[in-house]
């Protein structure tokens, strides 16, 4: 559907280099990366409003690299909506149809369809400055899809919204994607947003793609320290991996031996997600792999979740629900037992 071949963009001191992506038709594809990673530049390059240095962009088997933005069937929605402030909501939505020369009858049909889809009938005569953030984003979405684009580019569409509105607008976007079957390329710096909305994720950093995979791949098997840190893996260690026994690898971390279900050998990184570690005040019965004792050094209160840091050494972060935390009555300096499955330990 969209194929990006070795795309490079130079923008002052910033460079986006050698971006290669294949996005399937009707896929919800996420580009995840920190601020300044080049996410918006990537979207704008696909939309044709950002000149590229080298590379090609193909859409539905057609090379659109040299095509003008108005000729590509690609719409963009920005984080801060970019509604035309001098037009009413109705005229904002109709803008694309007018520019593309639709007749009044077709315009009325298309308008009615999108306003019903997004439930914004009551906003039509209002000016953008009288709308709430969520309403603005719905209008921006309506304006973007009314021209029936083949690809919808979303630049941090939930970034400027409060948590409640984020949830609602997020659901609206997923509904649009499902009902219209439109291909969506959504960029965000929010890992949870990426995991909950995307079919596949590309992690981007320092102007290049670091990893592409399904949400599970990115979540469970980060391929670099950058991806592991960005996807909030939490526990990332450097050490030496050696073959242990059939199908198992021992990861030596300054004398502490962690067992993993892989065949990797040599110096590498290991990561384990905090939620995969079981913590107990009493001895835990298991087959002996990855069973450790340590001392609690820190609690971080995150509301429903408590992060507990246990020094084995090294320090390892585990997660507890608030209810479990209160029931266990843990305290700083207390000795606890930790265990995790070898399949949870990811070596890279």
């Amino acid at each position: 559907m969209i194929e990006i071949r070795s795309l490079s963009v130079e923008l002052g001191a910033f460079t986006l280099h050698n971006i290669c992506l294949n996005i399937n038709r009707s896929e919800y594809f996420i580009v995840l990366g920190p601020t300044g990673a080049g996410k918006t530049v990537l979207l704008e390059s696909i939309a044709g409003v950002q000149p590229i240095k080298t590379g090609q962009i193909w859409l539905e088997g057609e090379d659109i690299t040299g095509m003008k933005p108005e000729e590509r069937k690609v719409s963009i929605v920005y984080q801060d909506y970019m509604l035309f402030p001098h037009y009413s909501v109705r005229n904002n939505i109709l803008f694309g149809l007018k520019m593309r020369g639709y007749n009044p009858q077709d315009m009325a049909i298309s308008l009615s369809k999108v306003v019903q889809l997004l439930s914004i009938e009551q906003l039509l005569s209002r000016k953008p400055n009288t709308l709430s953030g969520g309403e603005k984003q719905k209008v921006a979405l309506a304006r973007a899809i009314v021209t029936n684009p083949e690809v919808l580019l979303l630049d941090e569409p939930l970034g400027a919204l409060d948590p409640q509105t984020r949830e609602n607008v997020g659901q609206e976007i997923l509904k649009l994607h499902e009902e219209l079957g439109i291909t969506v390329l959504h960029v965000t710096h929010d890992f949870e947003e990426a995991i909950t909305m995307g079919d596949r994720i590309a992690v981007i950093g320092e102007g290049e793609i670091k990893q592409i995979g399904t949400t599970t791949d990115i979540f469970r098997k980060p391929n670099s320290e950058f991806v592991a840190r960005f996807t909030m893996t939490g526990n990332i260690f450097s050490g030496l991996a050696m073959k242990e026994r059939h199908g198992k690898t021992a990861f030596n971390l300054n004398g502490t031996k962690l067992i993993a279900d892989t065949n990797l050998e040599g110096p590498c990184h290991a990561s384990i997600r905090p939620e995969d570690i079981l913590i107990s005040s009493d001895t835990i019965a298991n087959d002996g792999d990855n069973h450790f004792m340590g001392v609690i050094t820190r609690f971080v209160n995150k509301g429903a979740i408590i992060n507990v840091t246990v020094n084995l050494p090294p320090p390892v972060t585990c997660l507890l629900t608030r209810r479990t935390f209160e029931e266990m009555r843990l305290s700083i300096g207390q000795q606890v037992h930790l265990t995790f499955s070898p399949s949870s330990l990811h070596l890279f």
């Binding site: 704008e44 939309a47 044709g48 409003v49 003008k68 933005p69 108005e70 590509r72 690609v74 719409s75 963009i76 920005y78 970019m82 035309f84 803008f95 694309g96 520019m99 593309r100 304006r143 973007a144 021209t147 684009p149």
Partner: peptide, 10 residues
């Protein structure tokens, strides 16, 4: 202006 271009404006 960029949004307007993607919406079909020259």
């Amino acid at each position: 202006e960029r949004v307007a271009r993607t919406l079909g404006a020259s």
